[in-house]
Amino acid sequence: MSVVKEVTEKAKRVQRSYAGEADRPLAGYVGVMGTYSALVGGLTLLGRALGARIPNRIGFGDTVLLGAATFKASRLLAKDAVTSPLRAPFTRYEESAGDDELNESVPGRGHVEHAVGELLSCPFCLNVWIGTGLAGGLVIAPRVTRLAATVLTAVGVADALHLLYDAGKKLASG
């Protein structure tokens, strides 16, 4: 038996043993993790080519800024109605979730499509990708990254203020 065939058979046994009757896209997850690793490697190579150096420490202010920007960007990409065309090849619209957010399901098509659909419709999953990109940007292009992160953070703060304003109007009229 060839090595490729042995590895393939072992992967199928692991899939069956892990998932049981459920259709879990382990092969798709491997593909998504491989893509993430390749992107991190690409960021690393780009940083080296540009002569960027990882700072000895990242300040508290930058950490808070990147955290808030990561939160807003992941919600925007995973849940916003306007970004639904990016998710549409991998998800299906279910219903409005209020405040311009959508609930979507991930059909059980191919393993890669399903895994990508789960990634694109999950703000928690996107946090890792977006946070990594913003952190890499902070090292490679700090001024541009801080500007983009500041815009995302400002939009997130404005969203929170809109929600508080609407809640206050409901309390006052109620």
Rank of each mutant, 00 (worst) to 15 (best):
P142H: 10
T63L: 12
S37N: 05
T132E: 09
V82A: 15
F90H: 00
V128N: 03
E9N: 13
Y29G: 02
C122R: 08
R75Q: 15
V155F: 06
D23H: 09
S105A: 15
T70K: 03
T70L: 05
L26Q: 00
R57N: 11
L152C: 13
A52H: 06
A22Y: 00
R109Q: 12
G133I: 05
V112F: 15
V139N: 02
E94H: 13
G34R: 11
K10A: 14
P85A: 08
F124K: 02
D166C: 07
P55K: 03
R57G: 12
E118D: 11
T91P: 07
G67V: 01
G20A: 06
R53W: 01
R92L: 11
A172H: 10
A19H: 04
I130Q: 06
P25D: 01
E113K: 14
L147C: 10
F124L: 13
V7S: 05
G136R: 00
L102H: 01
V40R: 05
A38S: 07
P107G: 14
I130C: 08
S121R: 02
K169V: 06
I130L: 13
E9S: 09
A148S: 14
M1R: 09
L65D: 09
V151Y: 10
L26C: 05
G117H: 00
E113M: 07
T83W: 01
E21G: 11
G168Q: 09
G174Q: 02
V30G: 06
V151E: 10
P85F: 11
G67P: 01
Y93C: 11
M1I: 08
A135F: 14
T153E: 07
G110A: 02
G28K: 01
A135E: 00
A49W: 10
T150E: 04
G98N: 04
Q15P: 03
L45S: 12
G117D: 00
A11H: 07
L164F: 06
Q15V: 05
R16D: 12
L86G: 03
L66E: 01
A158S: 12
T91V: 14
A73M: 12
R13T: 08
T35R: 04
V82Q: 06
L126V: 07
R53D: 12
P55I: 02
L50F: 12
A88R: 15
G108H: 11
A11L: 12
V82E: 03
V151P: 06
P107Q: 06
V7D: 03
D23P: 04
N103Q: 11
E104C: 15
G47R: 02
D159C: 04
A154F: 04
G34C: 09
A149D: 02
R57Y: 13
W129G: 04
